[in-house]
Computed example of a mutant assay.
Amino acid sequence: MNARTKTALITGAGRRLGFALGQALLNEGYQVIAHYHSSATGVAELVAQGAVALQADLADLTQVRQLIQQVQQLAPQLDLLINNASCFFDNDKVATSDEHLQAVFSVHTMAPYLLMEQLTPQLTQAQGCVINLTDIYVESPNPQYIAYCAAKAGLANLTLSFAKKLAPAVRVNAIQPGPILFLPEHESDYRQQVLAETPLQLEGGLEPVIQAMRLLRDNPFITGESIKVDGGRALLI
């Protein structure tokens, strides 16, 4: 009797960490449902490797509910939900745009809430797990990104709440990334400053986060936990 193919849903799978997580899970034989908003090129590459792509703007809760319905149709059993999608707006952007403010809380807190709540039957059926990507700033917020930090802190609290609610059938954990991959627009001086403020003085890359995902996914006795993957940066902020 053949083993059932495991299924994973990754939000924000079209670029950077979400894309790398999608590739890693595809290489392990998962059926990957790759959500994306606008990064179609990266998702197309995942689809070429066997993923199923679903488009939705997580800032629009109507679209979030439509995404959930599509996932329910595709996956009667969901082994892994990774809430990875993110948007990063500073104080000035959210102060001048209600759309940006709404997006910060919808993408980081409201959409993950709906996904975890409404996909509970599929996760329970698979005895699956949830991994939420939060941030090292949930405990020591950056005053230049107040809304972002608050929204990520909300997701950290949802991790604890759903870990309690869904046990013992479903485990829920979080990863707090630090300086894993600089953006192209980050200047050399900024990069040097961040690395100088990071005890291990390294740009971590994506592989350490993938390793943390595997640890939380595969260890059956961890739930309600949050792991920092930050080179020690949280010690100094």
Rank of each mutant, 00 (worst) to 15 (best):
T5H: 00
K6M: 09
T7G: 03
I10P: 00
R16T: 05
G18K: 09
F19G: 03
L21E: 07
A24E: 02
L26W: 09
N27I: 15
E28W: 11
Y36G: 04
H37N: 11
S38V: 08
A40R: 12
T41D: 09
G42M: 03
E45Y: 11
E45T: 15
Q49V: 13
G50L: 15
V52Y: 12
A53E: 06
Q55K: 15
A56I: 12
T62G: 09
R65Q: 10
R65L: 12
Q66T: 15
L67D: 06
I68A: 10
Q70N: 12
Q70P: 12
Q73D: 09
L74C: 14
L74M: 11
Q77F: 08
I82W: 00
I82C: 01
N84L: 06
D90Y: 09
D92L: 13
D92K: 15
S97K: 15
L101A: 07
V107D: 02
H108S: 03
M110V: 13
A111K: 03
A111G: 00
L114M: 02
M116L: 01
T120Y: 03
P121Q: 01
A126N: 01
A126R: 01
C129T: 01
L133R: 07
L133K: 02
D135P: 10
D135C: 12
I136G: 00
V138F: 02
V138S: 00
S140I: 13
P141Q: 05
Q144R: 15
I146E: 01
Y148Q: 07
Y148G: 05
A150L: 09
K152A: 00
A153M: 08
G154Y: 04
L155R: 02
L155C: 06
A156D: 10
N157K: 14
N157I: 10
S161K: 07
F162R: 02
L166A: 09
A167S: 12
P168W: 13
P168L: 06
V172Q: 01
N173Q: 06
I180S: 04
P184A: 13
H186Q: 13
H186D: 14
Y190Q: 04
R191N: 06
Q193T: 06
A196N: 14
P199I: 11
Q201E: 10
L206C: 07
E207S: 13
E207L: 07
M213P: 01
R214E: 10
R214Y: 02
L215F: 08
N219Q: 13
P220Y: 02
I222Y: 13
G224E: 06
I227C: 13
K228F: 13
K228R: 14
D230S: 05
D230M: 05
G232Q: 08
R233S: 14
L235Q: 15
L235I: 11
L236M: 14
I237P: 01
I237L: 15
